[in-house]
Simulated scan of single mutants.
Amino acid sequence: MHIVANTDVCVGAAQCVLTEPTVFDQDSDGTVTVLVERPEGDQARSAQLAVELCPSRALSLED
């Protein structure tokens, strides 16, 4: 699993950071930053939930 962030559509809601702060962060403008592009185990499950919760659909998963 590989996390892809479309920073052009990110609205800075921080749902990803709140769900999995070891994988996601925000830059000074509030835009998502992916800290771990290929999470594994429990981290991957939480990251997948964060992708699903993203209100702007700025996050996606690729194999």
Rank of each mutant, 00 (worst) to 15 (best):
L35P: 04
A5G: 08
A5H: 09
A14R: 15
V23E: 04
E52G: 01
R38Q: 12
A50G: 01
T22K: 15
R45A: 15
T33N: 14
A50C: 04
V36C: 14
V36Y: 06
R57M: 11
L53P: 09
A5T: 08
V23Y: 02
V4S: 04
V34I: 15
G41S: 02
M1Y: 04
S60Y: 00
E20M: 00
V36K: 08
Q48G: 09
E52P: 00
G41W: 03
S46H: 11
V17C: 01
V51N: 05
R57K: 11
R45H: 14
S56V: 01
V9D: 03
L59N: 02
H2S: 10
A14Y: 13
G12C: 08
V17P: 02
T22C: 15
D27S: 08
C10R: 01
S56P: 02
Q15A: 12
A50H: 01
Q15P: 12
Q26A: 15
V51R: 03
T33K: 13
S56W: 03
V9T: 09
F24P: 06
G30E: 06
F24Y: 12
E52C: 02
L49N: 14
G41V: 01
A44Q: 10
D27V: 11
T22L: 13
T19A: 10
Q15I: 12
R45T: 14
L59C: 00
C54E: 05
A47M: 10
L53E: 09
V23N: 01
T19Y: 06
F24E: 06
R45C: 13
C54Q: 01
L53K: 13
